[in-house]
Design a binder for these strands. Structure first.
Length: 272
DNA sequence: TACAATGTTTTAAG
DNA sequence: CCTTAAAACATTGT
């Protein structure tokens, strides 16, 4: 489920335990989410205090006194602060017991990831993350160069590229394209300079809207967005009421409106 | 039963 | 070597 705003919301689930000491570490001995590392290594967390939580796109960093936990929620990951006596469930791969509650990392499909970097400094991989979409470093020039380097790829694929649009996932990419009135399969290299500016602006807008509505309270996006219509069987475009198309673009199911988002060349776009 | 699910990585192909 | 497409990953739900 998690994209930028859902990730922010889940990361905040651990917030109540900031400045609390880890009393006990429980982890599944060989869950895929630990990848190369030995989960035993995480027992060094015992005695450390959780010092803060950061998010960057879909990446989460939970900082402790002597290191940082890098978390990625994959397709089905969740974070929760369960009661102190929480008994780890089948998919609770990591549980940190604190006096404020049990911090749970849960991920049934295990496409997510947990990693540990010792030391109080920010990990190198964290510092190497690309500019966040809502940061000043996310410039039109950056977007222009990113699109040019992926010129033959469909826009949908490039929006999903975490090196250029960190935090954007399937629903956000569809939302951005729908708001712009652009066809998802349009080639990234054919955008004009003015269109690149518009794309940058809309990507930032969708990020802000998502964080406001979902990131703060897991609220339901308004019916004026594509979001609430895109998965429902028989979902219709909230702009013109036409039945939404559902096709594979860039290997992902893509919801779009054939009327609002015509193929490049046609000029009957949606926009707003 | 078979397919699809808000993601990334590896492998194959061009 | 570079870019792009497809397969793989593991589990649950329709």
């Amino acid at each position: 489920m998690p994209e930028l705003a859902e990730v922010a919301w889940y990361a905040a689930r651990w917030q109540p335990a900031v400045d609390c000491r880890v009393r006990e570490v429980r982890c599944h001995p060989r869950a895929r989410v630990f990848r190369g590392m030995s989960p035993e290594e995480l027992h060094v967390l015992r005695g450390d205090h959780l010092r803060g939580l950061l998010t960057h796109g879909k990446q989460i960093l939970a900082r402790f006194d002597h290191g940082a936990l890098g978390l990625h929620l994959g397709m089905s990951g969740e974070m929760a602060c369960a009661p102190v006596g929480h008994t780890p469930g089948r998919h609770d791969h990591l549980v940190l017991r604190t006096e404020a509650g049990s911090l749970v990392f849960r991920d049934p499909r295990m496409f997510g990831r947990v990693r540990w970097v010792a030391g109080s400094a920010l990990p190198a991989w964290w510092k190497a993350l690309p500019p966040a979409i809502l940061s000043d470093a996310f410039t039109s020039k950056l977007v222009e160069q990113g699109l040019a380097a992926r010129g033959r790829r469909p826009l949908k694929a490039v929006l999903l590229d975490q090196d250029l649009f960190p935090g954007v996932g399937n629903w956000m990419a569809d939302e951005i394209l729908w708001r712009l009135g652009w066809h998802p399969a349009r080639r990234s290299g054919e955008l004009q300079t003015a269109e690149i500016n518009v794309l940058r602006r809309e990507a930032r807008r969708v990020c802000r809207d998502a964080l406001r509505v979902i990131g703060r309270s897991w609220g339901d996006p308004p019916a004026s967005w594509l979001f609430p219509h895109r998965w429902r069987a028989g979902g219709c475009c909230p702009r013109d009421g036409r039945a939404l198309e559902r096709t594979q673009v860039a290997g992902r199911t893509t919801a779009w409106c054939a009327a609002c988002q015509p193929p490049a060349g046609s000029s009957a776009g949606g926009g707003d």
